[in-house]
Computed example of a mutant assay.
Amino acid sequence: MTRSTPKRILLKLSGEVLMGEGAFGIDPTTVDRIAGEVAAAKEAGFEICMVVGGGNIFRGLAAAAKGFDRTSADYMGMLATVMNALAVQNALERMGHQTRVQSAIPMETVCEPYIRRRAVRHMEKGRIVIFAAGTGNPFFTTDTAAALRAAEMGCDALYKGTSVDGVYDADPKKVSSAKRYESVTFDRVLNDNLKVMDASAVALCRENNIPIVVFNIRETGNLARVLSGEGVATIVGPATVEAA
């Protein structure tokens, strides 16, 4: 499938990406490198908003499995995403790019509350908007938050930067013969339970016709290559993508 060039995108980053080579936490060098790639995309003319996960600091589902109350654990995970968002904001603004963090959990002394019309206006003014604290509700992942914000912002595509270079029919870290898809439909992802994003996020993108582009953000320079249509990635889209 030939990739169309989007204008407005939502970039979803897993929190683990910000760890760099560490076992947990935020690696400033890695944050600066990723912020540099986002800044370059902005300078290339893309309108960008972002959602960053919190798994490098705290993962609510894992904590719940060890005895934490699930609701409390999820709120803790949301707060971790705010820390990551502020780290990325700091890096971007040191590079000269105006950035706003909007949190689904109001904390006015730290960042703006999430207000859709204000977020749209920020993007129209050329600012990068980072959405934090997920949807503001427990039991929903940052993947779902990314799909929701992409729909609300009228994004042309959702780019998921992760540690693998696309969608596979099995876990490539465990199965050496796993096949990578160039493109795959929303329906196949849901029916085959392919590990792209959680089901609610995929369904939300399907309903709003927002393609998901999965690529490896750990590879330096890959965001620019994927945005130009040259990098290795998997496109998740409507039924026409597999026939293209």
Rank of each mutant, 00 (worst) to 15 (best):
P6K: 13
R8M: 12
R8E: 07
L10A: 06
K12E: 01
S14H: 13
E16R: 09
V17M: 05
A23I: 09
A23H: 10
P28G: 02
T30V: 06
V31C: 04
R33I: 01
R33G: 01
G36C: 07
G36V: 14
E37Y: 12
E37N: 14
V38W: 00
A40N: 00
A41W: 12
K42A: 15
K42T: 13
G53N: 09
I57P: 08
I57A: 04
F58W: 15
R59Q: 05
L61N: 05
G67V: 12
A73T: 03
M76C: 13
T81E: 14
N84G: 00
A85P: 05
Q89T: 15
A91P: 08
L92P: 01
M95F: 01
R100S: 04
V101C: 07
Q102G: 04
Q102D: 02
A104N: 06
Y114N: 11
I115S: 11
R116D: 02
G126T: 07
I128G: 08
A133C: 09
A133F: 00
G136H: 06
D143T: 13
A145M: 00
A147P: 04
R149M: 11
R149Y: 08
G161L: 12
G161P: 11
V164M: 03
V164G: 08
D165H: 13
D169I: 12
P172W: 02
S176A: 11
K179Q: 10
R180K: 03
V184Q: 07
V189G: 08
L190P: 09
L190E: 11
N191H: 10
N193T: 09
N193D: 14
L194I: 03
L194N: 02
L194H: 11
S200Y: 09
V202T: 09
A203W: 00
N208C: 02
V214Q: 04
F215H: 07
G221Q: 10
R225G: 02
V236F: 05
